[in-house]
Amino acid sequence: MEKKISLPLTDEMISSLHAGDMVYLTGTVYSARDAAHKRMIETLEEGKELPFDIRFQTVYYLGPTPAREGQVIGSAGPTTSSRMDKYTPKLLDLGMKGMIGKGKRSPEVISSMIKNHGIYFAAVGGAGALLSRQIKKSKVIAYEDLGTEAIREMYVEDFPVIVVIDSEGNNLYQR
């Protein structure tokens, strides 16, 4: 089924989405990958706040190539999600709702998604040039020193993803 979704996600939207749905996302997403996740968790452990309000937000596992002059962003496809698994349950507990990446998730992440009513989308890996066209704005909002691994606030339009694991734990990779 094809659906259009405006971000941020709501619990109603998440309930209406099922593993296998093709979804076009419009709205704000935040990029974060390995190093940004590590730092976010360290920040929390120090008792400090995350650099953005993660409640109901969608995080895109992405480290783009640099933009040329006149471009919003460079190549911008998903990275492998499982490397974020160690950090993900904590972020879901804090209210993060959506994740965009590629590949399998751990049983711990899936049970945390069920508990926290989260959803996991996959974008097509290795289609970074095509996906970059759907990113209309991008700005680094934290951890600039991490280069490609900095946190970016991005506005996407009709960004194509597939629901791989829904909030009930149905998993498209396990057919």
């Binding site: 992405l62 040329r68 460079g74 190549s75 990275t79 970074g128 095509l130 970059s132």
Partner: peptide
Amino acid sequence: IAADDSIPICQDT
């Protein structure tokens, strides 16, 4: 698109 827009095929270069 990579060729037309001068964007690397994949972000992991």
